[in-house]
Design a binder for these strands. Structure first.
Lengths: 209, 209
DNA sequence: AATTTTCTTGACCGGTTGGTCAGCCTGTGA
DNA sequence: TCACAGGCTGACCAACCGGTCAAGAAAATT
């Protein structure tokens, strides 16, 4: 017997179904890519008829764009952990922890982002050229300040950022490969060890330890 | 006026067309993923009729599998640079250089590999479980030997390997993002600086410098 | 020169895709 | 209570997909 569904308000309905669809879409896009994903598959995963998806999201591209944008927001929030830190040990350490946590909690989102960038960023090119470029420039200045203050070795700030992104996102994007080599999904202890390893190697690599 | 095509031998024809198709396929699979790629697109890029593709490769999956396998071979060859090195500075240094060179020369291949692993490795799962696992186990022992000999800090060998893969392949898989932030494709000097940055940070990060 | 084998290709096919739409259902405000 | 706007969906469609095939062209073999 199914539980009696309490009547929902209009705004609730919209909110609920949009997030339901977005969650399903994130998963399907991560598993199959944009071209491999089908609206029918997303609909089935969301438990809704396909036509209902098109009521909330006009086209497949619109839906995909929303998924990518949502991920970008989460991704940018982690950046705040880097600011207002006295030095690289705290700032970069916190950033690594935040990014590793995202790789763990939102592996599908990370994959969709990777997929989008890998294929030339047809949807979020403007974000790369504006928001991401500005954010990067700001962190480069921050790192240069730390270097000038003698708090870390004179590494190239851009390539340090690339390494931070690469090392942390790798645990989401290549999670399947890691799990295979690990003999199964990473446990809590595995994730802790991974985070510690990345932090130790990078912080020592930039001469901050 | 077109140049008179010298008559080709059978083996030449087969060889020539197969590599022509494989090159086109690598590019298209990298740009669109397996699901987004179409045989028609690959055929157009190779300058052949679609039916001709199916003469050399029975199915789209067969063609895709060949592309992934070819990349895996190149990828494994770079591993040899790590062996027969007296210590981590030479071994890991050479490995980073080899992997960076692959990221530069075969960015499409790297993307197809990333795409394959990201989507659960449906085609090359057996390679991960056999060849890659054995290779990894061998390098873990190599690194453990270097640690025991006091040639580097006691880092977790697996996570060091993940960082090597992540940092180097990032320049291929996320090349578009890097080029955007860089204001254009990386020049020779940019690639040299990138390689040096990765080498310096990682080698210092594992206490080998 | 004749014959066999390999290679090439336009035309075609069943199945699937993203997207549409008319009509129905259901909260909401008067 | 009633009218209306927002939410829902089965049925449908043109376009496109991977793959097939028969018939012809070209090379190898006899």
């Amino acid at each position: 017997m199914t539980e009696a569904p309490r009547p929902l308000r209009r705004t609730e309905i919209r909110q609920q179904n949009e997030t339901l669809i977005l969650q399903a879409a994130e998963k399907v896009f991560a598993e199959a890519g944009f071209g491999g994903a089908t609206m029918q598959l997303i609909a089935d995963m969301a438990g809704l008829p396909k036509a209902n998806l098109h009521y909330y999201f006009a086209t497949k591209e619109d839906l995909y764009r929303r998924v990518v944008q949502d991920i970008f927001e989460i991704w940018l929030q982690a950046a705040e952990s880097m600011d207002q830190a006295p030095g690289p040990v705290e700032g970069i350490g916190a950033y690594i922890e935040a990014k590793m946590e995202i790789s763990r909690r939102h592996p599908d989102g990370s994959k969709v982002w990777a997929y989008e960038v890998m294929h030339g960023a047809p949807v979020i090119q403007d974000y790369l050229e504006t928001t991401l470029r500005e954010w990067t420039a700001g962190r480069v200045r921050l790192i240069e300040g730390w270097i000038a203050a003698g708090k870390m070795a004179p590494v190239d700030p851009e390539h340090l950022l690339y390494m931070l992104w690469a090392a942390t996102q790798h645990y989401a994007d290549f999670g399947h490969q890691i799990a295979t080599l690990n003999g199964g999904p990473l446990t809590d202890a595995d994730w802790q060890r991974a985070t510690d390893s990345v932090k130790t190697m990078i912080l020592r690599g930039i001469g901050a330890l």
